[in-house]
Amino acid sequence: MAVEALSATVVVSNERRRDGKWLWALPPLLLIAVLVVYPLVLVAAESVPAWGGVIESAEFRDALVRTVQIAVSSTIGCLLVGTFLAVVISFVPFPGARVVAGLVDTMLALPSFLVALSFTFIYGTTGILRAGGFLTSPWAVVLAEVTFYTPFVMRPLLAAMSRLPRAQLDVAASLGAGPWRVLRQIVLPEVRPALVAGGSLTLLLTLNEFGIVLFLGAKGTTTLPMLVHTKGIVMFDYPGACVIAVVQIALSLGLYAVLRMALGGRRARLD
């Protein structure tokens, strides 16, 4: 009797909680709506009169192409370097490998412009390598972004690799496969979801990257976020900045949505 009464109240309170619960989610959502959605809507509205002029301009087209070029090159670089580092930490471990993995985690929280700042000393006209021309080329931005975003690829990879049973690598080796074959045919296929996740996040973040480009400040490497800043703050051309912002949002969100969908589909197939 008592037990039945108890379970009855549990059910009742559960239902009540379920009914009213979503109301609690409204205040934080309202906050985001006012502070993010509303401003973005205004940006879109503000941009309307300036579209023709900006889209036609060579400045805009160059920046668009540069942004995509830099983001794609950086992402490829991050994937190569990040995969190599993660494979070594996971499968050819050395004393201190865990410290290195921890260091990688810390780097995620550091500001990206530090890397650009250090490049002034390494590649600057009076620096270690005195590669003056390099610092103003897009390749400096790519190298800086590879440096900074490699940890973003490594983190999901390290997690996925730690879940990969060591016995699979052992068995593959016992069947006569050398390290290269094991890597290509066992490790990489099995961590592919993590590779795709890390790579797409990196692509998104490098498309949006601002600090590195700002600090390197090279003439030939104006990207879209940089152009938003120049137009908005330096030239006070709000409508022009808004147009570029809208294009950038479309690019980022479009890519984000496509990747999430692609990833979601893959995950569904894998499960």
Binding site: V171, A173, S174
Partner: peptide, 28 residues
């Protein structure tokens, strides 16, 4: 291990999850 040519069956079998049965057997 790759140069020893020994057959090994481990506890949880460690079949390669992304390969079909035939490809698992063909791996070596």
């Amino acid at each position: 291990p790759a140069k020893r040519g020994i057959g090994v069956v481990v506890q949880q079998y460690a079949l390669f999850p992304h390969l079909r049965v035939a490809d698992n057997v063909a791996f070596g």
